[in-house]
């Protein structure tokens, strides 16, 4: 039943997923294409003028990393633009399958079939995760091929690490959307709440760079770990824990969805 729902959603979202992948890929190719022309820049010298706190806040402490192709790509895209963009892909899928489906009365039909409500939430979540994975794999493959053609050596595994690091991050933020969609529905509320969590989580490490009292609090932010994964490699235990938290939030959303009225 869940597989049927996932397959149905992926078929419906196939064009949208391709557009997402194409958009991110074009951006990525542009940055890779620019790299040869700025590869001679001495970032250590350039960033000397910036206060330490600012460099820490924006993950630019290791200026030497910018002089490598993957470091440059991470700095330009994976540290800010892509995380902020990609979370709206799984959120969009969840929104389509839950609050939007409820508001346009698709659920009135779907929930009168033998499909359980928790299965609808699980199907939406897995379809969102699958969409995310598809787009990230396309982004990785497209960027690697383009970089080869341009003559920039990104490194398969380094780029894979950057792409994969987005998966738990986006999954966690989207799971806050699943929680709200399950608890009370509403497209605006779902996107708004998850967007708010995204902003809050992003800001915590930034604030912590300037304010010592946030040193510990920032650890509740997924960006605290994500930034580290980009610089030092993914810590699989941390990534797994983030996914477990995302799954737990989604499960709570499913439980609340089982207990509430479907909007009329």
């Amino acid at each position: 039943m869940i597989a049927m729902l996932v397959g149905h959603t992926l078929r419906l979202r196939s064009r949208s997923n391709l557009i997402w992948a194409a958009g991110m890929l074009v951006w990525s190719i542009v940055i890779v294409a620019i790299y040869p022309s700025i590869s001679h820049v001495n970032y250590e010298e350039l960033l000397k003028a910036y206060p330490k706190e600012v460099l820490k806040a924006f993950g630019m402490e290791d200026a030497a990393a910018f002089s490598t192709p993957i470091g440059y790509l991470n700095g330009e895209l994976f540290s800010l633009v892509f995380p902020w963009a990609i979370v709206f892909l799984p959120l969009g899928v969840l929104n389509h399958c839950l609050p939007a489906a409820e508001e346009r009365h698709f659920l009135d039909n779907l929930l009168c079939t033998p499909v359980g409500r928790w299965q609808v939430v699980a199907g939406a979540t897995l379809a969102a995760a699958a969409s995310l994975a598809i787009v990230l794999v396309l982004l990785w493959a497209g960027t690697i091929v383009s970089a080869e053609l341009i003559g920039v050596n990104l490194g398969y595994s380094d780029l894979a690490r950057s792409c994969f690091a987005l998966f738990p991050l986006a999954s966690l933020i989207a799971s806050f959307g699943a929680l709200v969609a399950g608890a009370r529905g509403g497209r605006g509320m779902t996107l708004g709440f998850a967007g708010g969590v995204l902003v809050l989580m992003y800001m915590l490490p930034v604030i912590a760079a300037f304010e010592d009292s946030f040193e510990e609090i920032q650890k509740i932010s997924v960006f605290y770990y994500y930034n580290d994964w980009l610089s030092n490699g993914i810590v699989w235990g941390q990534a797994g824990l983030v996914l477990v938290v995302a799954a737990a939030l989604t499960a709570v959303g499913a439980l609340l969805f089982e207990r509430r009225d479907i909007a009329s």
Binding site: H105, F106, D108, N109, L111, C112, T113, P114, V115
Partner: peptide
């Protein structure tokens, strides 16, 4: 869910996916 296994339903308001 036991009910849903055995009924056919036409709600007063309903929508299907536009492209299907």
């Amino acid at each position: 869910r036991e009910v849903h296994r055995r009924v056919g339903v036409l709600p007063s308001e309903f929508a299907y996916e536009d492209g299907l």
